[in-house]
Design a protein around this nucleic acid. Structure first.
Lengths: 341, 341
DNA sequence: CTTTGCGTGGTAAGCGCTTTCCGAGCGCGT
DNA sequence: ACGCGCTCGGAAAGCGCTTACCACGCAAAG
């Protein structure tokens, strides 16, 4: 405590001196360089290191080597299970590779992405994983693309999750197809008056899911009775749904592009005296863990979130080889929130 | 892509040369040092910086300055809403202070804490926040305490959440008191045959909550019919509860030391044909978001998780002043999972 | 008109490492 | 006995920055 006075971390020079060897030797002994050092000297260095409580300054190492061992993850909100599951996957994989993970949250405004990326570049991460959905319109993303290019130029490998924007490694998620399948399955269960609850129309992920769902409906000759746009959160969806109900909308099934939003929608229904799964069906997307505990258990599309994260890192770490290798498919999971009617 | 060939990030020297000034001036212009530089020169440097797409190497800055702008957060599992909520709070506060956040997960084995801390020390974080519960027995924690001391010596300010172990700043959480109140409230609702579902007895947080709950019962002249120890996760609690039920235990109320565990317990009850909130009451702890969406809504103790995170950072950043200032109180929230009987 | 001092730019000495390069010592073949 | 090629320590040159220190010019003070 209050060691303000003596901020004297042990340095490599200290260890070298204590062991009676040169810094070069100490450095080589403490981290398997390509060069071999005498067993006895190695032992001496290790002993000194232990005795002095030495811990290599990773920052200085990074500067000297010109590269870091960190992977940066950009996401909307750590507290959102969608993002935190992905993050967990990244962390797990990172640990295996002896990498440290830094997390960058853009919060509610995705516009902050650019500022976030700019700040991040200074850290020179080895890998950057973007879990945050990007803009659909390439023009909106131009400054972002530029910044990403700058990042690559400074040595960072960029991997985006679910983005199609060019030039970077990416993990494609079968949002469109899965949403379409979900629609088909719901129609087969006898629903016909759908309301779609979606997020920002400028963003890719909600759009893909919403469009896919509509495509699925269309192939059954249907279309949603309404498409409502609302915030990405539980609260946002709750408000939107409540407003929709207040305006007289009476769907027999609600599809929210996100489980978190579906949860909010269900709460709104209940508040309006409609029992989810009885009076009106509710379906979400992602299959976050808590969706299994709600009653009725929520119909959704299962996405292997954690695997998305670990795989993104693996893709980034892998050689140049086919960045496009397969897209991750979602799996429709029908539960009690959408019983056959 | 594949700029492997020319990993040529623009350096300060490049900017200085391009602007026709010395590196010192460029450095001073690009980040408000105490020294003033001529307005015109500043403009020139800024222009060059912009034109070349310069981004200061934060690592080199850290080495030169001898201090970083990062806060490290140690937690059990990012995907667990308890931890991710705390992390969200830290991130939010960090952003205000222009700090970057690195996350370190210990996973299921808390023993990995030591290894994690060792690796972390290399990063020389300015602040370390430990959200992970520590051992109760100081002896178990001795190597940890040593490592924390080493961290402080190398300039890191340590702040623990909910830990009492000495010498570091800390945020105390009123686990014991709140759990006790919860017990009292449940007894008042007419419950009497309690099963307590708790985590690792060697860890502080579950122990405080469990002990507090028992103290509350005791003051009503009761004691639990069983205290079961299980994993901290939903799955762990589910298994433990299922086993308890299989062995013939028939509580009228289950208290789990964590909402996540309570969710697992509820699932186990249901699987055994017992309806939570009808046949047996269920209560948790933390008031994670999803606990409001389950049916029946879960009785719990509300802890301002995100605030815990932001406040921890504030405490760490604050001067030496009273590290103990107040403990965070939990608030009992009675919901439908424990109706009066 | 000289002295003092301040304001501001540049020079260079670090920060804690890695790694290139040099040279000493040694085993071997001829 | 000599030279060649190895192996393996150490000296020192960076890595990209910051900052103490110096130098210079100019206004104010004596």
């Amino acid at each position: 405590m209050s060691d303000q006075s003596s901020p004297s971390p042990v340095t490599l020079a200290d260890v070298a001196a204590h062991a009676g060897v040169s810094m070069a030797t100490a450095s080589r002994a403490l981290n398997g360089s390509s060069r071999v050092v005498n067993a006895e000297m190695t032992e001496r260095v290790l002993a000194s290191s232990r005795e002095l409580g030495y811990s290599a300054n990773a920052l200085a190492q990074a500067v000297a080597r010109g590269s870091t061992r960190t992977v940066a993850v950009v996401l909307g909100d750590v507290a959102d299970p969608y993002f935190s599951s992905i993050a967990a996957g990244v962390i797990e994989e990172a640990e295996k590779n002896d990498l440290v993970v830094t997390m960058w949250a853009t919060g509610s405004q995705p516009d902050r992405l650019l500022a976030t990326l700019k700040a991040m570049r200074g850290q020179r991460p080895q890998v950057l994983i973007i879990a945050q959905s990007g803009h659909l319109d390439p023009e909106d993303d131009e400054p972002i693309t530029d910044e990403l290019a700058a990042l690559q130029k400074s040595g960072t490998t960029v991997c985006t999750i679910g983005e199609a924007s060019g030039g970077f490694r990416r993990l494609l998620v079968g949002n469109y197809e899965a949403a379409s399948e979900l629609a088909t399955a719901l129609v087969a269960r006898g629903y016909s008056r759908f309301v779609v609850l979606r997020g920002d129309p400028a963003l890719r992920t909600p759009t893909e899911r919403s469009d896919g769902f509509r495509a699925g409906l269309k192939s059954a000759g249907l279309e949603p009775i309404a498409v409502e746009v609302g915030g990405f959160s539980r609260a946002g969806a709750l408000d939107t749904m409540a407003a929709a109900l207040a305006s007289g909308l009476r769907p027999d099934c609600v599809f929210a592009v996100t489980d978190v939003m579906a949860l909010g929608a269900a709460a709104a229904l209940r508040a309006a005296g409609l029992e989810p799964g009885v009076d009106v069906g509710v379906a979400g997307f992602d299959d976050i863990e808590s969706v299994r505990d709600v009653t009725p258990a929520m119909t959704t599309v299962a996405i292997p979130l954690a695997e998305l994260g670990s795989r993104a890192l693996r893709v980034a770490l892998a050689g140049e080889s086919d960045p496009d290798e397969g897209s991750i498919a979602g799996e429709v999971v029908l539960r009690e929130s959408t019983p056959a009617r």
